Amino acid sequence: MTERDHIESAAQMRLRHGSPAEQAELAARAAQDPALRNDLAAWDRQDAALRALYDPVAQEPVPAALQAVLRRAERRAERRSGLPVWSQLVAACLLLAVGATGGALGARWAERAETPLAMAAFRAFATYSVETVHPVEVAATQEPHLSTWLSNRLGRQIAPPDLSRSGFSLMGGRVLPGVNGPAVLMMYRDAQGRRLTLYVAPEPGRAEQPPEFAQRDTARSYWWFDDSLGCAVVGDLTREVLHGVAMEAYRQITGA
């Protein structure tokens, strides 16, 4: 395409999406120009294909993860103003954009390459989920002590989420070394003996990030950053099952 062709195409596109008078001018030109008529027909076909592809997405409900981000942003806006609220909204917009590009929003969450948080969570799961003798340091039977111990080592108040609605009961927890200080690992299992872990590590100064999906071999994870903490739920489960469990943990930890 020559520079002249490019300029003419740009002008034609401007007229096509301009005022009614400009669109009428373009139609009059097309009536005298077969090549322009072909261009307009091709653009019409492209528009129709895009509408067929993305119109259904626009009618889908807003994902639960995005709704949670927006609700929390609204609540925090009542308590403080400035960048933290806008960072929530930016994250929400990014999540929406990624979902739309993927072709469906629904219950899907964004996917991206593993972060150091996700990698550490995968390593912890691989190491301790197969342990039969000492899978945890402090058992769930000592739950009050467990919560206090984990909170003291993490330097933040943390209580193991109740995941019984998703069919998983707490086995206990342990403390692990982390990049920014001690991290904690809580382990759960269901009636079938399947195990999953919740890895929580300090992430000072980290911008809040809604849950995202990652996978390593058969292990899958949903991870997020919130209030200077990084959290990752990991399990050798289907994505749908893990999604439900992770959303429950996310709601309880963040108060979303």
Score class of each variant (00 low, 15 high):
Arg76Glu: 14
Tyr188Arg: 04
Ala28Gly: 08
Arg51Ser: 13
Ala121Trp: 02
Leu83Arg: 15
Met119Glu: 12
His17Lys: 03
Ser169Tyr: 04
Arg72Glu: 14
Ala97Asn: 11
Arg251Asp: 07
Gln67Lys: 14
Arg220Val: 09
Thr132Asp: 15
Ala110Ile: 10
Met187Ser: 03
Glu131Cys: 09
Ala249Ile: 01
Arg14Glu: 12
Leu198Phe: 05
Leu105Trp: 10
Thr101Lys: 11
Glu78Tyr: 06
Ala124Gly: 08
Pro144Val: 11
Ser169Ile: 03
Leu95Gly: 15
Val184Leu: 14
Thr2Leu: 05
Phe168Trp: 12
Ala183Glu: 03
Ala10Arg: 08
Leu66Asn: 06
Arg239Asp: 13
Glu143Met: 07
Phe213Asp: 00
Arg37Leu: 11
Leu83Phe: 13
Leu26Thr: 02
Ala256Met: 07
Trp224Thr: 06
Glu22Leu: 10
Asp47Ser: 12
Thr238Gln: 07
Ala77Leu: 13
Leu36Lys: 01
His134Arg: 15
Gly103Asn: 06
Leu95Ile: 08
Ala24Met: 05
Pro177His: 03
Arg16Ala: 14
Ala48Val: 03
Glu131Val: 01
Gly255Cys: 02
Asp190Lys: 00
Gly82Tyr: 09
Gly18Tyr: 01
Pro20Ala: 09
Gln157Thr: 15
Met119Trp: 03
Trp224Asp: 01
Ile158Met: 10
Leu89Cys: 07
Ser147Ile: 02
Leu50Tyr: 08
Gly103Ile: 03
Ala31His: 00
Phe122Glu: 04
Cys231Asp: 08
Leu117Pro: 05
Gly18Ala: 10
Ala246Ile: 04
Val179Asn: 12
Tyr222His: 13
Ser81Ala: 15
Glu131Tyr: 04
Arg153Asp: 12
Leu117Val: 09
Val200Trp: 02
Ala113Asp: 11
Leu170Glu: 05
Gly230His: 06
His17Met: 03
Arg79Phe: 09
Asp5Ser: 07
Ala104Trp: 09
Ala52Thr: 12
Gly235Trp: 00
Cys93Leu: 15
Met186Lys: 00
Gly106Pro: 01
Arg76Trp: 00
Ala246Arg: 02
Val184Gly: 03
Glu3Ile: 01
Tyr128Ala: 02
Arg29Thr: 00
Gly106Tyr: 04
Ala110Ser: 14
Ala24Ile: 01
Ala140Arg: 03
Ala139Trp: 06
Arg16Tyr: 02
His17Glu: 08
Thr254His: 01
Asp226Thr: 06
His6Ser: 13
Glu143Pro: 01
Arg189Cys: 11
Ala110Trp: 01
His145Asp: 14
Glu8Asp: 11
Gly102Cys: 09
Gly102His: 14
Val130Cys: 06
Arg16Met: 10
